[in-house]
Every structure is written in structure tokens, then in C-alpha cells.
Simulated assay, not measured.
Amino acid sequence: MYGPFQKARHALRGGAALVLALLLCAVVPAKAAGVTADGTDRTASARMLVPVGHTVGIKLFARGVMVVKAPESGTPADDCGLRTGDIIVKCGGVSVTSSEQFQSLLQENGETATDLQVRREGESMTLSVSPEQNETGAYCIGAWIRDSMAGIGTMTYYDPETGSFGALGHGITDSDTGILMPFASGSLLPSAVKAVKKGASGEAGELRGDFDLTGDLGDLSANTSSGIFGTLDPGEFTERLGDAIPVASAGEVHTGPAAILANVEGDAVKEYDIEILQIVEDAADSRDLVIAVTDPELLSITGGIVQGMSGSPILQDGKFAGAVTHVLLNDPSKGYGILMETMLEAGDPAASSVT
């Protein structure tokens, strides 16, 4: 449920980049642990994190390029065995860094058969492709590819001790293939909500906003199925954040009243009432918490949970319980959340040994 996405030409890498809505995912709860620089034990229950809840612009560049549409029959891509979801990481022995660079490599090779190093479902393989000229004279293989994504999502937490952050509560996945985007680099950008499309039964709503491509807030370091992670640059954004609160252990989170922090109007982050309806044990897709929005104000603005709210912190009993991740399409007032322990274990550099 990662923010409203639009097509953007020349916004990323100076070339054409498809910008599309992302799918949702998460993982199974696990206890996060670590040690601070002064030797203090940092188990999940002892951690102190700042719940954020503010929207941010997110841009992510893939490692290689992803095939996002099945090659048509008879094209060089089809003949060589490329499939939807394949990630092309090398062309003729040269690492692929962008769609534009990949096209340049094809032009250099011309009609000569070229080896493509491909990652498929975690396995590496080599395919041989013979490009063909199109009607404009350019050498092509007939594959739809993508190298980057950008849009608006919600930052979940900030760790003032390490400068690290987590956002979304789910990974950035390709909207055509549903596959987690292979991470190369990325950054966060200032953002504000300009409008809201209210959710309705059968149709997800969305936060609509913009972000400034010229001013980074920080860098991404990981794209995992339970969130994106990185480090914020000290500055005005971090100075405006609130105080850190304890992270709730999985056993402390319970059914009953809770709250979320969300940015659904302009630059303001507000607290809204929700209820945790169910704790899902060993959730296969990390829909650890079933939640319902009960706050009349939020229901009147958004109809419940909408795209762009993924990552909104869930607070309960004065502790940091988790983050919003999914919406129920048939009832947008309800959705799912991920436990904070799960999110921290997935990719926070300060949490255990997970990388």
C-alpha cells in the first residue's frame, strides 16, 4: 500500500522511469536484539524509538533491470528464454545499472549474440540473446523492463541513537510482477499530503501529494519484505520529531484500544483511535495484527486505511506496538498491521544480526 504512484518521465536518472503503486508484504514475528556503542543490551522490549507517522517521498533504484511483462512470442527475449520477473544483472559481462545503460550496451553489441546474466527466483543463470533492429534502427530484445520506482509512503520510526529509520512496514514490490524490487540504492525526500481519495468498499483510497526530488532527507540501505530501512540526515526534519518511546514486545501487544499516527492532511501528523481486533499467530505473510479504524475524524477524511498510510505507527499502552500495512478492500475501515518486533528484525541495522 505504498503511496499513490504516477508515471514520471525524466524524474529518475534523467531517463524514462515507470512509477507505479506497490504491493504489500511482511514477515513472521521475531525478537530483535542488539548492543549500543556503550555496551547496553538493546532487545526489542528495551529499545526506544521515535514514532514518526509523516509521509515521505521515496525513490528506489533496482540492482539490474527487471523484466516486468512476458516477452511476446518470436522476440529475441522470448527466444532466449527470458521470463517475467527475471532480473538482468549483466549484459556481455558488464553490470547493468539502469534501463538506459542496458539499451546502450545493446546498441554497442548490435546483432551480435550477447550473454545476459539473469537472476531468477534467487538463482543465477546465463542466457544468450541476439538483438534485432526495430523500425527506428535501434537494437532491441523485445522485453519490457524497469529499473526504478518512486512515490509517497509513511515513515514508521526514527532511532535518535543511531540515526536509522524504518518505513512502510512492507517491501517495495514491482506492481506488475509482485516481486520485491532488488535493491541497489535509494533515498527519502520531503513530502506533504495535498489531497485524499477516500476509500470505499472494493476500491482502495489513496493519499495524494508531491515530493521534492532536489532535497534528500536520508539514504535507503535495504528493501525487505517487512519494510524499507536506512539512515536520516540530521536537520530540520529530525529536529521536528517527537520523543522516543519503548518498543512493545510481541507478548505485550493485545486486542483492544490503540492508536495510530498518520499524516493525512498537509504537513500535520495526528493521533487517531483504532482497535486491535486480533493477534494472528505465525502469520505467513506477516499480517500480524487485524485492526479497525474507530476514529470518526479519520473515517470522515479517508474512510479508514488508504494507500500511503502504510508504515503509520501503531501505539498501545504508551508503547510502540507496530505499523499499518494492509487494507481490507471490502471494508477500508479495517486492515492489518505488522508487529514492531517483526519490522525491526527484518532490516534495521541496529537490530540483531539481520542485514
Rank of each mutant, 00 (worst) to 15 (best):
G15T: 12
L20A: 13
L20S: 14
L22C: 13
L23T: 13
A26Y: 03
P29L: 10
G34H: 03
G34C: 08
D41S: 13
T43V: 09
G53T: 12
K59T: 11
A70T: 13
E72M: 10
S73P: 02
S73F: 04
A77G: 04
D78H: 12
V89T: 15
C91F: 04
S95K: 12
T97K: 11
Q101N: 07
Q107S: 10
G110F: 04
G110A: 07
A113V: 11
D115K: 12
V118L: 01
R119S: 06
G122Y: 11
Q133H: 01
G137E: 04
Y139Q: 00
G153W: 03
A167R: 00
I172N: 02
D174P: 04
S175G: 15
S175K: 07
D176K: 15
L188W: 07
G202F: 09
E203M: 11
D212Y: 12
D212K: 11
L213D: 05
T214P: 02
G215M: 13
A222P: 01
S225H: 13
I228H: 00
I228W: 00
I228N: 00
T231R: 13
G235A: 08
E239A: 15
A250S: 13
E252S: 11
A259D: 06
A259L: 02
I260V: 15
L261G: 03
A262V: 06
V264H: 00
A268G: 04
K270Y: 04
K270F: 03
Y272I: 06
Y272V: 07
I276C: 08
L277R: 14
R287W: 08
I291V: 15
I291Y: 05
A292V: 14
P296E: 14
T302H: 01
T302L: 01
T302Q: 01
Q307E: 14
S310T: 10
I314T: 02
L315C: 10
Q316M: 12
D317P: 08
G322C: 09
P332C: 07
G335S: 09
L339G: 07
E341V: 06
E345F: 09
T355N: 13
